[in-house]
Write a protein that binds this DNA or RNA. Structure first.
Lengths: 141, 141
DNA sequence: ATAGTATTGATATTCGTTTTCAATTGCAAC
DNA sequence: GTTGCAATTGAAAACGAATATCAATACTAT
């Protein structure tokens, strides 16, 4: 059993929810992906594996995975939201190249700390943040 | 004529678009607001002024104002997007309350500087960024 | 096994936003 | 000023991602 499955089982158990075959299948597939994905991608890939899991269940399960901290949702403008598994990964933000669409991930501890500080100054309980640096990558200057 | 109007006129002219009474009315009202607003707020306020401008036109005009840099859109999760005029204002970022929708503005120089630094480290030419801190405001803890 | 409740899939619904299209209007050329 | 043409408008319909509904099903504890 992978760590993520253990964590998901514990989360569900604590909430009095059930560990179903659909939820396991979605979890395992999500953990196997190494790129950002949309709900339709995930749903389609599960079908290709021969699993007939409904659209609604994919949405519902992703919501659970987000709530228990295994998955992160990336709100995308003018397109369906993208998701990525974050369990076992370090937090990162994104740079987005306006010309070639390339996504560069980065992590910067001072930025994280200053965000915390700013939130505290405003007595704001931070649950997350979303930082995208827009511009042009090395190749597209 | 206010500066924003001059800028909007120039933008429309360059694009071969027309400066209509509806667009002027929306521009002036948007510039008069000192808070973030949703499309419905704007539409309703215009109606209260006796102007009968359609929902569609409000959306269409806001898209133009964004494109020409007078207005900024703030994508809000699970609720209608908010807008604000940015022409003539200093840059700032936002905290967004997931419960009441309140928006808190902040400016933090270190975060801005570290973003520049991170971009330079990746030889990324930054043209802008978008930072939203999500969570719960003082009242909604 | 049984009861009780969570979960599922199919479908319908929601609601912010966009598109359609005929009527209107700005704007530039005369 | 008049004219012609394309941009713009309002009303309504369409769109689409996400959510809710609900009867059937399946998990879990006893």
């Amino acid at each position: 059993m992978i760590d993520a499955e253990r964590k998901f089982r514990e989360y569900l158990s604590e909430k009095g929810l059930r560990f179903t075959s659909e939820r396991l299948a979605i979890l395992l597939h999500v953990m196997s992906l190494h790129e950002h994905f949309a709900v339709d991608d995930l749903h389609h890939q599960l079908r290709q594996k021969g699993l007939s899991i409904s659209h609604a269940t994919v949405f519902r399960t992703l919501a659970l995975l987000i709530d228990c901290g295994i998955v992160q949702k990336l709100p995308c403008e003018k397109m369906p939201a993208r998701y990525e598994h974050i369990f076992g990964h370090l937090h990162h933000d994104h740079m987005f190249c306006l010309r070639c669409g390339r996504i560069i991930e980065f992590h910067n501890a001072p930025i994280e700390r200053w965000q915390q500080k700013v939130a505290e100054e405003h007595r704001f309980q931070m649950t997350g943040h979303h930082l995208i640096i827009r511009g042009y990558c090395e190749k597209c200057h």
